[in-house]
Amino acid sequence: MNSSILHFISPPIPYFLDCGRATYGIGERHIKRKNIGVFDLIVVTKGALSIGENDKEWELQQGEALILRPDATHYGAAPCTQETEMIWIHFQTFGSWRECQDMKECLDNQTELIETHKQIAYLNHCDVCSIFIPKHIRVSQKEMEVLNNFTLLEQEPQTMRNWKRQAAFQLFIQHLDRDLASMSDATAFHLAEKIELFIRQNYTRNLSNAILQQELNYHPNYLAKCMLKIYGMTPIEYLTYFRIEQAKKLLIQTAWSVARIAEEVGFHHVSYFSSCFSKKEGISPSNFRMKFIGPR
């Protein structure tokens, strides 16, 4: 199923707000709304629903879902021709997101979106990642079971209901994110994740392309190709990026010297660390620290 992709940066993970069920008789249609301020996930569980967003329209069949944007006009594109039922879920995100035509566009703009996210979500020293959700979805049986839990949770006390709904919603979007990855270049996604995990677990070591080849059993050129496709940077570029992210945390959370922090995150020379840090952040490590905790 060809579909545009909603690209979210996390943390925070898109969060659940509200949900319900709706029924449409023959001749009825979805209400027209504009700029409702939340994402609206619609899942047709019976019949068919014609729905539009701005200048695009869909005919959702049983078992299909659509995510409507918070900043668009939604409307019933045509009256229902049969009894129709749906589940709706409203959710939102605090950080950056973008609708892209395909995965290539998502990955091409990933670095820019991450940098924007770090500023608007106040996560400029937090490790972030992408979540990719198809806009138009055919819901699997497993995903439908998760959605049906929302109705069952109506029987829970309010204090527990919202916790469990949030957990169920996160499980649902996790399924959608992983399903999209498996339908894309699965080998590249899985290998890039292995590289990323290996670097995270070993970033203080003196890593090189030769060591990555030995550990992962792939030629460095192929490792670089996979990382560039998924993360927008080579393994060595990601290593430097991750080291600097860890250094930013230490600059804020400890009183260690810049030289010690450089050594702790894997840089052998403080001057090279300062150069890499300044190039990426546009500010020296000392000034970065002063920005958050003031002069010492």
Rank of each mutant, 00 (worst) to 15 (best):
E112D: 12
N162L: 11
V43M: 12
Q201D: 07
L191G: 02
I36G: 00
F8T: 06
K34Q: 07
I133N: 00
P134E: 14
R296L: 15
F39D: 03
F277K: 01
P134W: 07
E28V: 02
S208T: 11
M103Y: 12
I26G: 03
F150T: 00
W163E: 10
R200G: 06
T204S: 12
M103W: 09
D108Q: 14
Q170M: 14
R205D: 09
I67C: 04
P220Y: 13
C19S: 13
L41A: 07
N148I: 03
D71L: 08
K142E: 15
K104D: 11
E264W: 03
N35R: 12
I9N: 06
A65G: 08
G25F: 14
I9W: 07
C276W: 00
P295D: 15
L171D: 02
C126Q: 13
K56A: 10
G47S: 05
M290V: 11
Q155A: 12
S50A: 12
S50I: 03
E145V: 04
I230V: 15
F273Y: 14
M86Y: 05
S182H: 12
S271C: 04
V43I: 15
P285W: 06
L107S: 05
G63I: 04
F172R: 01
E83N: 06
E64N: 01
D185Y: 09
L223Y: 00
L123I: 03
E57S: 09
P11V: 08
I133F: 00
S10K: 13
Q246M: 11
L191W: 08
E156D: 06
S275W: 04
Y222E: 05
C226D: 05
Q166S: 07
S184K: 03
M160I: 04
I31S: 06
A210P: 01
A22Y: 08
L176R: 05
I133H: 01
H175M: 15
A78C: 06
L251Q: 01
N202Q: 13
D185L: 08
I31C: 04
I283L: 11
I137S: 03
S3M: 11
E59C: 06
D185S: 08
F277R: 01
A48L: 02
I114V: 12
I230C: 01
L60A: 04
M103K: 09
D40M: 04
K249Y: 10
P11R: 07
I199E: 04
S130K: 02
S96I: 08
I5G: 02
V265T: 05
S208R: 03
D18W: 10
G27H: 13
F172Q: 04
A210H: 07
T45L: 08
D18A: 14
L17W: 07
E85D: 11
T93K: 03
H190W: 11
R200L: 15
A247H: 01
E112L: 13
A78L: 13
H125P: 00
L191E: 03
N217E: 14
V258R: 00
D18E: 14
H7C: 12
A188S: 11
